Computed example of a mutant assay.
Amino acid sequence: MRDALQASLEKRINGFVAEKAERLMDEKDERKIQACADRNAVIVKTYARGKILRQQFSGERQAVLYEVHFQHLIKQKEHLYLEEEVEVREANFQRGMLEDDSEVVPDQLEAAFSADAASLEMGARERLSYVYDRRKAVQYAERWWNSYNPAFKKFDVDCTNYISQCLHAGGAPMRGYPNRGQGWWMRGNNYSYSWAVANSLRWYLAGSKTGLKAREVGSPDELIPGDVICYDFQGDGRFDHNTIVVAKDANGMPLVNAHTYNSRMRYWEYTDSSAYTPKIKYKFYTILDESREWL
C-alpha cells in the first residue's frame, strides 16, 4: 500500500515538473520575443525540459529541488544560433498537494565579501607576461557553462568564479597569493576577492597593471570573444554579475555565457532577465596581453 502511494506521489510530482517547465517557457517567451524583436531576430523554436535534482521527505511533507532547461533556436538575418538557460526551483508539497513553488535565489556572496578598489592591489612591481588565447577561453566557457570543473571551488553565486576560470584557461596568470585583497588567484579553497566577487573583479579589470589586464571600451560591439561584460542591475555603482563573450550575433553584438543562472549564447543586454531594471549599467572590458596592450 505504501509503495503504491509513493509511486502515485512520484508520478504526480514528475507531472508537475513537466507541466511547470511548459508554463515557465510560455512566460519566458513573452520577454524573449520582445528582446529578439528589438534586434530584428525571431525565435524559430523553443524547448523546455524539467529535471528533478533532489527530493526530501519529512512525514507527509515533501520538498523537491528541480531545474528547468530552456533552449531557444534564434534566427537573425541568415544566422541561426541556440541560446540556452537553466533555472533552479524548489517546490513544497503536503500530502501530495502543492503548497508553494519558487525560483531558488542564491545567497549574495557580495554581502559576505565587500572588497572594493581601495583594498585591491593595483600596481604590483612584478610583471607577468602572457598571451591570451581567446579560443581556449571560449572553449572552456562552452565546456563548463552548465556544469562545474571539480578542480575549482564552487560557489552558490558562481558567475565570477566561472569567468575567472575562463580567463585563466585562456592563459591569464594568477598572482597575489596568499593575500585575498591583492592580485587575482585561487588555490584550493582559498581565493582572492577579485577571483570570485563580481564587484571586485570589475575593479580589478579596471586597474590591474600586471598579469591579467583589461581596457574598458565604450560600447559592446567593440568586444570580441574572450572579453568580459560587468552588470550593475540596480545602477547603484556595485556590480552584481559578470559574463564572458563567446560569439557575436548577425549585427556584431556580443552573445555571452554565464554561471549562477547558467546560460549560453545569451544576448548581452539581459533585458529578458528577471534581474533587469531600467537603472542597469554595464562595463565593457577587452582583455589585454602583450600583443594588444597598446591597441
Rank of each mutant, 00 (worst) to 15 (best):
G123C: 07
G123I: 00
A137K: 01
P178I: 00
V157R: 12
E103T: 15
S147K: 12
E110L: 11
A172M: 03
A172Q: 06
T160R: 08
S194G: 08
A111H: 14
L128F: 10
L128E: 06
L109Q: 01
G207Q: 12
G176K: 10
L120M: 10
A196D: 01
R134L: 04
S114M: 08
A151C: 04
P150K: 05
Y191I: 06
D156V: 07
A214V: 00
F113D: 02
Y191S: 13
G176R: 12
E216N: 09
L205Y: 06
S194D: 02
N149Q: 04
V217G: 03
E121W: 12
S194W: 04
S194F: 02
Q139G: 14
P173V: 14
K153T: 07
D116Y: 10
P220F: 07
G176P: 12
A124L: 05
A198K: 06
P150W: 01
V104P: 10
R215M: 05
G171M: 03
N146W: 06
D107T: 10
G171Q: 08
A169T: 05
S192P: 15
A118D: 09
R125H: 10
V197I: 14
W144N: 10
G218S: 15
Q182L: 02
N179W: 04
N190T: 15
T210D: 05
K209G: 00
S194N: 07
L205I: 02
W203G: 08
A115L: 03
G183L: 00
N149P: 13
R187W: 12
G181I: 00
S129T: 11
V138T: 11
G183R: 01
K153F: 04
E126R: 11
P178W: 02
V157Y: 01
A151L: 11
R134I: 07
W144Q: 13
A115Y: 13
Y191F: 15
K209T: 11
Y162I: 05
N189A: 08
F152Y: 15
N189Y: 06
R187A: 11
Y191T: 05
W144F: 13
D107N: 13
P150L: 05
K154P: 13
H168D: 03
R202M: 07
Q108L: 15
K213S: 13
L212M: 04
G171N: 08
L167S: 05
R134V: 01
Q108E: 14
N146V: 00
Y130K: 14
Y204G: 06
V131D: 13
R202C: 04
R175V: 00
V157Q: 12
S114T: 15
F113Q: 00
